[in-house]
């Protein structure tokens, strides 16, 4: 295998795993409310920016990340309470959440530009530096990429175990299938919805920090493309499917890196949308989208 191909593949897998995290976050709110938080990109950006800011104030890297995640989780609750819930309960069209979540994201982006400036800021090395590597099968492998991959995969697995093996995971699934039935069965649907927005925001925050670690810098516009790529991954894999999120994320990551490397870096992000259109035309329910189980 030639070095160039191998390095593109590894980079693709690493960022792909992060796209999968974003897709998982989108899935989570989709399960509980059939809505997507399009402000996720701004939460990714904000979490990374805050990490830079807090560690520049002398906070240890781990604490800086933790503090940023707490803040982003709180914002997730705010988003559910003030942008999604009003849009869902108001009469008339029920698509208002698209505009309100996106609008809130743009607002956050504006605030970040105002307080942190719109210049790109250098992101601190959290565990390894960009120069650290190990040798695998005779190839140089960046340790940062490996850490990102490991964190993303570990989170995805934890999430999957939570959903499959815990009562609360089953409850989330139940809410996605029939919220009214869940309510009369005593499942605290409101709290689960709030929780799903918090957890989804935390996933976005982690994704933001991981991508920033690979890229090395953050700026207020960062995150906007990324959430779209996460969205492509989610749709490609099948909206609502965790396995789909993972496979979709890896596909988007690897294909865009390969196209970026062999064709043109300008096509790197565009190719994802070509993939999206192809997927929608050929298999609209996504790779792992499940058909309804029903019998009259």
């Amino acid at each position: 295998m030639d070095d160039f191909f191998f390095s593109l593949l590894l980079a693709g897998i690493s960022v792909g795993a992060v796209y999968a995290l974003i897709a998982l976050g989108l899935n989570l709110t989709f399960w509980t409310t059939k809505t997507l938080n399009f402000g996720q990109g701004s939460l990714m950006m904000l979490c990374a920016m805050l990490t830079v800011f807090l560690s520049s104030q002398g906070l240890a890297a781990a604490l800086a990340v933790l503090g940023s995640l707490v803040l982003v989780a709180a914002l997730g609750m705010f988003i559910e309470r003030w942008t999604v819930r009003p849009a869902l309960t108001s009469s008339g069209g029920s698509m208002g959440w698209v505009v309100s979540t996106l609008g809130f994201g743009i607002f956050l982006q504006g605030m970040a530009a105002k307080y942190f400036g719109s210049q790109a800021m250098a992101f601190p090395d959290l565990v390894f530096t960009a120069q650290d590597f190990v040798t695998l099968f005779g190839q140089y492998v960046s340790l940062q990429y490996l850490v990102v991959l490991a964190v993303a995969v570990a989170l995805i697995l934890t999430f999957e175990i939570f959903v499959r093996c815990t009562v609360w995971g089953h409850a989330v699934h139940a809410v996605s299938l029939d919220p009214e039935l869940a309510l009369v069965q005593g499942i605290p649907v409101r709290r689960l919805i709030l929780g799903s927005f918090m957890l989804s925001s935390i996933l976005a925050g982690v994704a933001g920090v991981l991508i920033a670690q690979i890229g090395g810098t953050v700026d207020p516009a960062f995150g906007f493309d990324l959430v779209l790529l996460g969205f492509v991954a989610a749709v490609l894999g099948g909206m609502g499917s965790s396995l789909g999120a993972l496979v979709g994320g890896l596909l988007v990551g690897v294909i865009s890196k390969l196209v970026g490397g062999y064709v043109s870096t300008a096509a790197e992000h565009g190719i994802a949308f070509a993939l999206l259109m192809l997927a929608l035309a050929v298999r609209p329910q996504g790779l792992f989208g499940r058909p309804e189980v029903s019998k009259a």
Binding site: H170, A171, D178, Q185, G186, I187, R290
Partner: peptide, 20 residues
């Protein structure tokens, strides 16, 4: 006939028991 149709029979029962 409201049920969680995608869940198995036993998962429906478990869920009902868990929140009962």
């Amino acid at each position: 006939r409201r049920l969680f149709r995608q869940l198995t029979v036993e998962d429906n029962l478990k869920l009902a028991w868990s929140f009962g």
